[in-house]
Amino acid sequence: MFKDLDPLLHSQLRLSVISLLVGVKEAEFSFLKEKTGATAGNLSVQITKLSDAGYIEVTKSFRDNYPLTTCKITAKGLEAFELYVENLKSYLKPGN
């Protein structure tokens, strides 16, 4: 049976961000930008969407007088990611 894929995660950039954050404790905005190859504006919008959904926690601070944005995945985000992967499996199983 096909299961609905979480629309919040079923987008290339948001899925990339969540996948990067799954493997690390926390990452800076510049790291996510470098690894995803996204523009700062687009990444910022997608991070806000993930943060609003409670999937990631965004911390804003300063380093050397420059704003510093740090992101980390939340328990809710991890659960959503695991569910997404589980649902994805049902699409990929042979015979479906």
């Binding site: 079923h10 290339q12 996948s19 493997g23 690894k35 995803t36 687009n42 997608q46 994805l88 990929l92």
Partner: peptide
């Protein structure tokens, strides 16, 4: 990277595996 590019299931899997590998 496109804002809301539609993903196929295989593409999703490729994104996940590539990004997890990149972080590691």
């Amino acid at each position: 990277m496109e804002n809301e590019k539609a993903l196929t299931e295989n593409e999703s899997l490729a994104v996940i595996s590539k990004m997890i590998k990149t972080a590691q």
